[in-house]
Structure formats: structure tokens, C-alpha cells
């Protein structure tokens, strides 16, 4: 059973209780940030801050409005962090669709940061390892819902079976359309095989307004490295090794006695 989070951005009131719950459950110390004139707790995710409510300020028809979004790991079906990770067992896709980081195996190379199309993982400066939302794998494993879901006061957040949540999202999208939000829709980008964090957006054709990439895919340079380049490197390595070996078998070493140079300077001097 694939589980997911559904984030109905239309119901978010920006209370940030989910941020607190995330910090509490994961026992993370809060580090002070800088106040930049926004209601947002921090400008960006941090190695010990995995769940950020974004207060996206959008100007429309002379009025400013907030488009709330919850910024965190998307738990992609086709995860870029996993594709780029060199350390076996450091990034583990669980059977329920969670992409979990196992820090004993993390070597801190930071390739997951480059591989992630959502720019989510962060390196901890002290431990030199990468961190992000675990979908509370230590809660879901024992049948509890993630901490952020548990604490949400408006039912903006729902946890459950992915297919069921998609049906709920469809229903909600229909309601929004009936209410006059013609552009309402679900954010479930197919470029990464779909995500296990789903959004209901009022303006689904412009997810950038929510700080979400329009068509995220695993970066092509990562795909190039993990695809054609791997074949090319293997072919070139064995081609050279075998080529050298068989060159020796066929032609043998260079031998001045046998392969003498008829125009060598010593003969002419």
C-alpha cells in the first residue's frame, strides 16, 4: 500500500503548527533565522528544519494575497536524490512509497541535493550528513500518521492511502471549480513518476506561484551520468584493458633488435 500526504492549500491558515510538530517529534533544535519582512518562519529549509510553510505573496488585480504552501520532501516515485546517491543504503525507498534517509550510511557528498528537482535535502554542518522529511517513517511504521498531519487544526493535511487521497483531491477540486476557481487542480507531477505528497491548488496551471516547479524531472545531467555515461565508461575501460592485452598478445613488446630504425641518427653520424 502506497501512502501519501494530501495538502489542500486552500484550507491552510498559516498557523505553522505542523512546523512545530515536526520539530518536536523529530527532536530538532530550532536555530534562529533572520527576519526578512515575511510571516514565513524561515526563507528556506534547513538541515534541522524539514517542513516550511511558505507564505507566497501574490499580486493580482491590485490586491495582495497569500498562496500558502507546505514545502518539504515530495517523496517522489522516481526520486532524483536516490538516483544520484552513491552510497548503498543511505537513501531507502520504503515499500509504502516513503523515501527515507538512513544516516548511518550517508557519506555527506551532497549529490542528493543536486539530484533533487525540488531542492529539498540539506547538509548538516556538524554531522556533514544530509537531512530531510522522513514522512515520519518511525510513526507510520507503527500505524501512526505523520506529526504534521496529526497536529493540523483545519484538516488541510490528510494522510492515508494514496489512491484514496487522489479521489478526495478530485472531489475537492470539483468543489473549488463549482465555487468559481476554474483553474483549480491537483499537483502530482508525472515527470518524477508522481509524488507521495499531493497538493490541491487553486491555480494549478501556475504551480510556480506556490513555489512548486511546473514540470520537475530528474536533472538530465544526473540521468546522463547514471545512464549513457555509465555504459560509455564501462566500454572504454574494458575496451582499453582488453585492447592493450590483445595488442601485447598479437604484437608483443617493442624490440630494438627486431624493429630497428633504418634511419637512426647513429648510423649517419
Amino acid at each position: 500500500m502506497i501512502v501519501a500526504k494530501l495538502i489542500d492549500t486552500t484550507l491552510c491558515i498559516g498557523c505553522k503548527a505542523c512546523e512545530v510538530a515536526c520539530q518536536e517529534w523529530n527532536d530538532q533544535e530550532y536555530t534562529m533565522g533572520t527576519f526578512d519582512g515575511s510571516y514565513q518562519t524561515k526563507p528556506e529549509l534547513e538541515a534541522n528544519f524539514w517542513n516550511l510553510i511558505k507564505f507566497n505573496e501574490v499580486e493580482k488585480d491590485g490586491a495582495t494575497s497569500w498562496l500558502m504552501s507546505k514545502y518539504q520532501c515530495m517523496h517522489c516515485a522516481d526520486a532524483g536524490c536516490l538516483a544520484a546517491c552513491p552510497a548503498p543504503g543511505a537513501i531507502v525507498p520504503l515499500a509504502n512509497g516513503t523515501i527515507d534517509f538512513v544516516h548511518e550510511n550517508c557519506i555527506g557528498c551532497g549529490y542528493c541535493i543536486t539530484g533533487c528537482p525540488f531542492d529539498v535535502p540539506r547538509l548538516n554542518a556538524t554531522t556533514k550528513k544530509a537531512y530531510k522529511c522522513t514522512l515520519c517513517s518511525d510513526r507510520t511504521a507503527v500505524g501512526l500518521e505523520p506529526a504534521c498531519i496529526k497536529t493540523c487544526p483545519t484538516n488541510c493535511l490528510t494522510f492515508g492511502e494514496r489512491d484514496e487521497l487522489l479521489r478526495m483531491a478530485e472531489t475537492r477540486t470539483g468543489e473549488l471549480k463549482a465555487d468559481g476557481f476554474a483553474d483549480a487542480g491537483i499537483y502530482n507531477p508525472q515527470g518524477v513518476g508522481g509524488t507521495n505528497v499531493l497538493y490541491v491548488l487553486k491555480h494549478a496551471s501556475e504551480p510556480e506561484q506556490y513555489g512548486l516547479p511546473k514540470d520537475p524531472v530528474i536533472p538530465w545531467t544526473v540521468s546522463l551520468w547514471k545512464g549513457p555515461m555509465k555504459w560509455m565508461g564501462t566500454l572504454m575501460f574494458w575496451g582499453t584493458v582488453l585492447g592493450a592485452f590483445f595488442h601485447f598478445v598479437i604484437y608483443g613488446p617493442q624490440d630494438p633488435e627486431k624493429h630497428g630504425h633504418p634511419e637512426e641518427p647513429s648510423d649517419k653520424s
Binding site: 544520484a84 549529490y111 543536486t114 539530484g115 536533472p219 545531467t221 544526473v222 546522463l224 551520468w225 555515461m229 560509455m232 565508461g233 572504454m236 575501460f237
Partner: peptide
């Protein structure tokens, strides 16, 4: 993104 492909390519 550029380096993650350029580094192994140069190494090959």
C-alpha cells in the same frame, strides 16, 4: 548540475 556530469566524463 554541470559538474556532476563533467567530473565523471573527464575522469573517463
Amino acid at each position: 548540475l554541470l559538474s556532476i556530469a563533467a567530473h565523471p566524463l573527464a575522469a573517463i
